[in-house]
Measured scan of single mutants.
Amino acid sequence: SAVVMEEGSPGEVPVLVEPPGLEDVEAALGMDRRTDAYSRSSSVSSQEEKSLHAEELVGRGIPIERVVSSEGGRPSVDLSFQPSQPLSKSSSSPELQTLQDILGDPGDKADVGRLSPEVKARSQSGTLDGESAAWSASGEDSRGQPEGPLPSSSPRSPSGLRPRGYTISDSAPSRRGKRVERDALKSRATASNAEKVPGINPSFVFLQLYHSPFFGDESNKPILLPNESQSFERSVQLLDQIPSYDTHKIAVLYVGEGQSNSELAILSNEHGSYRYTEFLTGLGRLIELKDCQPDKVYLGGLDVCGEDGQFTYCWHDDIMQAVFHIATLMPTKDVDKHRCDKKRHLGNDFVSIVYNDSGEDFKLGTIKGQFNFVHVIVTPLDYECNLVSLQCRKDMEGLVDTSVAKIVSDRNLPFVARQMALHANMASQVHHSRSNPTDIYPSKWIARLRHIKRLRQRICEEAAYSNPSLPLVHPPSHSKAPAQTPAEPTPGYEVGQRKRLISSVEDFTEFV
């Protein structure tokens, strides 16, 4: 048969007729292969192709491409040299491709048809291009793949890379869960390890502090508590009631339409708007009261037996805890006409967050109470924005700035309102402590230090009264110190430094 060459192609190359033996071998191979691939376009007849790359030819070592076609129900084999250009295909004639002069020997084609199974398996396991790669995943090629499931790999992101949580363990979102698992493993320790309690022994800490320079003076030496005195035992138990972190309780009120001037209507609300609910979820963490331990979680007086509701929101960081007394989460009882059960919590909070959804101005004093010092007013606006402002009593104007209003988005509203309420509550605590000038409020841990110092002074006084020969370590507060001759004046800087060093040991009130 003659071949018409394309323009620009090399000279004529004689194409030899395939021997009958080659056709029989390739026909047997075509019957084993699956003929249901995917359909081509209507211009080209339905056909199945599979590209198999052999590394070497037997005796020649030339890479070839073998295409199996099922045109007219008769499979045909096409061998081509890759750099050459194939002729145009037609549905009426068999596929013809040019070969190099080196394939002119018909014996070479017979060798190609009689490829060993080793070469076929190696060509099938190679990388296939384009559409033949999808075909190689079918059941027909499963014989050339190794048996057994593939090893499982770690989760992959859409980009093909490992997620960040699997790369950096410290930033993994499941870090707290692993800590819980470690605690569970520790709890399952053997009885021999049960006595080993991690941490620092208080006796060891005391020993280090006792021999430090801070205890060089007799006034700073630790003293032993009497065991037989019940009054001192009660004082030590009272110390446990003062937490070592700051605590805040903040009221949250929802004002519906037409309720801006009605205290009873505001306290009777059992739910609010959708934006109000989203605002609550951002204030803190939802907790169930019956599962809380009052000595570990500050509840601000809420009952854990269901008297004040089942849930509330709280927030904490390293040095403070805040609980929100939310009116809509507290039960509304029919027998309580004046809502006294709610007001006994909300009316005693220094700061209230008022979500004013009424469309009218909310005035300070609508919720009557002796300790309502500051109101954080949240007014929802259009386009997911809110107006946040402050209202306070006249005696609080020096501590709280009420002249600045803020426009905040719904997303950042819980954070801004919480921070403003916490700052206002700190100012309210300082303002409330002014009624007792001898006990200015600095912080909870300073209050613990003052309680310890008062307890020490009482013990020293009782020891001096029981044994008059012992001198008083600290003179009583009601006694007057003996007159001392004025010492020589020293520079102001040295006096300030000495006073600062003494105050650092005794108390921190002056620095606050």
Rank of each mutant, 00 (worst) to 15 (best):
S219R: 09
S219K: 13
L224S: 14
L225I: 14
P226T: 13
N227I: 11
Q230F: 14
E233Q: 14
S235V: 13
S235G: 12
Q237S: 11
L239R: 07
D240T: 04
I242K: 08
P243G: 06
Y245E: 10
D246A: 05
D246T: 08
V252G: 00
V255I: 07
Q259I: 02
A265Y: 02
I266E: 03
R275L: 01
E278V: 06
L280Q: 01
L286V: 10
E288S: 12
E288L: 07
L289W: 15
D291F: 12
Q293V: 11
V297A: 15
G300D: 15
L302C: 14
L302I: 12
D303N: 13
D303V: 03
V304L: 13
G306Y: 06
T312W: 03
T312D: 05
H316G: 15
V323F: 15
V323I: 08
H325M: 05
A327V: 05
A327P: 06
L329A: 05
M330W: 04
H338W: 08
D341C: 13
G347T: 15
S352L: 04
D357H: 03
D357S: 01
D361I: 06
F362N: 02
T366Q: 04
G369V: 03
G369Q: 06
Q370M: 14
N372H: 08
H375E: 15
H375R: 04
T379W: 03
P380W: 00
E384I: 01
C385P: 02
L390M: 13
L390Q: 05
D395Y: 05
D395R: 05
D395L: 03
V400G: 04
T402F: 05
S403C: 07
S403W: 03
I407Q: 05
V408I: 14
R411K: 14
N412Q: 05
L413V: 13
L413T: 10
P414T: 03
L422Y: 06
L422H: 02
A424G: 04
S433W: 10
S435V: 09
N436M: 07
N436I: 07
P437I: 07
I440T: 13
Y441Q: 14
K444Y: 08
W445N: 13
I446A: 14
A447R: 09
R448P: 13
R448E: 12
R456D: 15
R458Q: 15
I459E: 11
E461S: 06
A464L: 07
Y465C: 15
N467H: 11
S469W: 08
S469V: 11
L470F: 13
L472Q: 15
H474P: 14
S477M: 09
S477N: 12
P482L: 09
Q484M: 11
T485Y: 10
P486A: 12
P486W: 10
A487C: 10
E488Y: 08
T490G: 11
T490M: 10
P491V: 09
S504D: 14
F508L: 14
F508C: 14
E510C: 14
